[in-house]
Amino acid sequence: MSVRLVVRTFSELCITAGALIILFVVYFLFWTGVKAADAAEGEIDTLQSQWAREPVAQAPPPGSAEPSPSPSAAPAPAPYRDGKPFATMRIPRFGADWEWPVLENTAVGTLQKGLGHYSGTARPGDTGNFAVAGHRRTYGDPFKDFPKLRPGDAVVVNDGTTWFTYRIAKKPYRTVPTDTAVVDPVPRGSGFEGAGRYLTLTTCEPEWGSSHRLIAWAHLDATRPVSDGRPPELSG
């Protein structure tokens, strides 16, 4: 009798553990994507209503094809608020409907809602390195197709006033997690020389692991005021 009770309880515990594992896999592979899509949509909505309400104060001078930094002429823009969205990113290589918000900082909770901007790196369009991290798997898989990036691919960032079109410089570069020089103002390993307006994307490598990181670099190719409509890269 007691042996039967022990065996039965043990079997029930095994079944429970199996069900737990299956549920966790469902949560991990499916539910995080649902949550991230919902959160990212909410962040983009927040941004758009914010932009509609109060135009961002750092509009570039009209007619200038190149961005003019001139920090002395314009007052310094307000710092980005931690965990809040400040721009959207589109990468046509990842699909025409691929659009994610870029949020300030790279905390775990921030990256569950969209892409994370490394605090302390440059703003989009500024001289320096605009560095952004994103999940490759889970939470909507934003950077799932990261290895498909090729030189010349467009990365289009919209901060509410300006479309910044960056061009990927080389195929994704594999490195170790401690290699923080890849987000330096002049990133090491990128082949860029001298100061410039760069963009760095980071994600994990291998796809389901964390032993390495995959890095993509781009340089600013064109800017366009939002009032002039979408850049041609997005219509193709």
Partner: peptide
């Protein structure tokens, strides 16, 4: 480890 997507050491 799947959420480790940043270079920060």
């Amino acid at each position: 480890p799947f959420g480790d997507v940043t270079v920060d050491g």
